[in-house]
């Protein structure tokens, strides 16, 4: 499963990076094309950037769905542990099992609902058409307004991301039963800050 881990990480890293770059370029373009630079201005004005916001949103929604799955194995999703922490070991084990199962259940249901939505929203039409079958009451789905991409492709983030998330919850639960460990995200830990050199101002202490 290492390949899946890596793929997941590379994917969400790329999504946030590309989204940042796109908005940066769009803003620079907006100002540059307002400058009276003659032919260069006409060239800039001929570049269409009006899809930038839409693409940024799509990239971030995909990042959110797959990042949420990545977050499960990082233990980053915050919960209320006041009650759980007061239970004895056996009950805590039971409660944690319930909580993780709820995660599997919810993300599993969403994956199925998402798949149905994508199907109804245009995939059915495309698939049945491709197979030369009668599309019946399935109609061709809408597109996004600016990029004009079929929305069913864009919405695939929901079933795909949620399936992966459900799978991650299963992995965490299996590992919890085997070892009793849960992934834990330490919000107080900052990578790289442990090695900072001694704070300079302390040396000036009288």
């Amino acid at each position: 499963m290492k390949w899946l881990d890596h793929l997941e990480e590379i994917f969400i890293t790329a999504l946030i990076g590309v989204a940042t770059l796109i908005i940066f370029i769009a803003v620079v373009h907006r100002y540059a094309s307002g400058l009276p630079l003659g032919a260069f201005q006409d060239f800039l004005l001929s570049i269409h950037m009006s899809w930038a916001q839409e693409l940024c949103i799509i990239l971030f929604v995909w990042m959110a769905k797959f990042g949420a799955a990545y977050g499960v194995r990082q233990g980053i999703h915050v919960g209320v542990d006041v009650l759980v922490n007061r239970l004895n070991a056996d009950n805590r084990r039971r409660m944690t099992t319930v909580a993780l199962s709820a995660g599997i259940l919810f993300t599993g249901i969403v994956a199925i609902l998402g798949a149905r939505m994508v199907w109804e929203n245009g995939l059915a039409y495309v698939a049945l058409n491709a197979l030369g079958m009668d599309t019946g009451s399935h109609y061709e789905g809408p597109t996004t307004p600016d990029l004009e991409w079929p929305t069913w492709i864009v919405y695939m983030a929901v079933p795909l991301g949620s399936s992966l998330m459900s799978f991650r919850f299963m992995q965490v639960l299996a590992n919890f039963w085997r070892t009793g460990d849960l992934p834990h995200h330490d919000h107080g830990h900052v990578e790289g800050l442990d090695e900072v050199e001694p704070f300079p101002i302390v040396e000036q202490k009288p």
Binding site: S33, L35, L45, S50, E54
Partner: peptide
């Protein structure tokens, strides 16, 4: 060169471009 706000629409985009504006 004016930055003109429009709602999402290819026609309105073309309209603003025809005027030399930046939709």
């Amino acid at each position: 060169g004016l930055k003109m706000r429009i709602q999402s629409s290819k026609v309105l985009e073309a309209e603003m471009r025809a005027l030399g504006a930046n939709p």
